[in-house]
């Protein structure tokens, strides 16, 4: 079974993010990683391959810096990697990305497309659903368990107020939720081998993506400052607890 994994490279969760002008200061980001949910999706794809054979292809849209994440995917166990190259990634919205990804895989047949449920930078979770809808493929978001039979995929996922099980025909797009698996650390051998594997580069300008952006990014700003808080005083824990409940009830009327 051939599996495609969508990889988004994002700033490390711990990285300092600053806004200068009305833009994110990307040069100031110390470390970039595979978005955590995408890493879970990649791990799932590799586990499926290890169990049932086939190949795992990792794909990412961006400038040459995303090759670092594709190499990381190799190190974890991906067989091939595609970079959809663009130097103005920020100008693309989710439709642009979805369209570019679909164009880049034209002529290839993946039975399963795995992705994280959302990127940890913008928390949208749109691209996999847009791709599936454009192609009229089955799509199941927020997967907690994936079982692939010959003729259908059985996916357990988080749903409104509970859990649901879906059956989908192929091809199917699945987005990974937390709890699907625990991603592995790449082995030293994997890391060494990842450096020699070729990355297929496709220029977005040659893919014929139509795209004028449908969403305008007006600008970024620092988070609004939270009003100054105060420490609840008291001689002991009991006094502080009483003073806190009083403050919740009377000062902010939250109870």
């Amino acid at each position: 079974m051939d599996i495609l994994v969508l990889i988004k490279q994002v700033p490390d969760t711990e990285a300092k993010i600053t806004v200068s002008g009305n833009k994110i200061n990307e040069a100031g980001v110390s470390k970039w990683i595979i978005s955590p949910y995408d890493e879970i999706a990649l791990e799932e794809a590799i586990r499926i391959k290890e169990k049932s054979g086939g190949t795992v292809t990792a794909i990412s849209v961006g400038d040459d810096s995303v090759q670092a994440s594709l190499r990381q995917a190799f190190a974890m166990g991906a067989d091939t990697a595609i970079q959809v190259k663009t130097d103005s990634y920020q100008m693309l919205d989710s439709f642009g990305i979805a369209e570019a990804l679909l164009k880049a895989i034209e002529g290839k047949e993946y039975k399963v497309i795995l992705a994280g449920r959302q990127g940890s930078d913008s928390d949208n979770g749109q691209v996999p659903l847009i791709m599936a809808t454009l192609k009229d493929w089955g799509v199941v978001p927020f997967a907690k368990k994936v079982e692939l039979k010959d003729d259908k995929a059985i996916i357990e996922c988080e749903a409104e107020g509970g859990d649901a099980v879906y059956e989908s025909s192929y091809p199917v797009v699945v987005t990974a939720n937390a709890g699907l698996n625990e991603p592995r650390y790449p082995s030293l051998k994997g890391i060494m081998a990842s450096k020699k594997k070729p990355i297929e580069v496709k220029n977005i300008s040659e893919l014929g993506v139509s795209g004028e952006a449908r969403i305008e990014v007006v600008g970024f700003e620092p988070p609004p400052p939270r009003p100054a808080g105060r420490v609840i005083d008291g001689a002991d824990a009991a006094e502080k607890a009483k003073a806190l409940v009083k403050a919740l009830a009377e000062e902010i009327k939250a109870l």
Binding site: R230, V231, A237
Partner: peptide
């Protein structure tokens, strides 16, 4: 967490929460 808190209680939660529960019972 205290940097973003409206109210902060610096103490052992095992001593704070039981008293809060009693206070909340009275409140409600």
């Amino acid at each position: 967490i205290f940097k973003v808190s409206t109210f902060g209680v610096v103490d052992d939660l095992f001593n704070v929460v039981p008293v809060m529960k009693e206070e909340l019972k009275t409140h409600y």
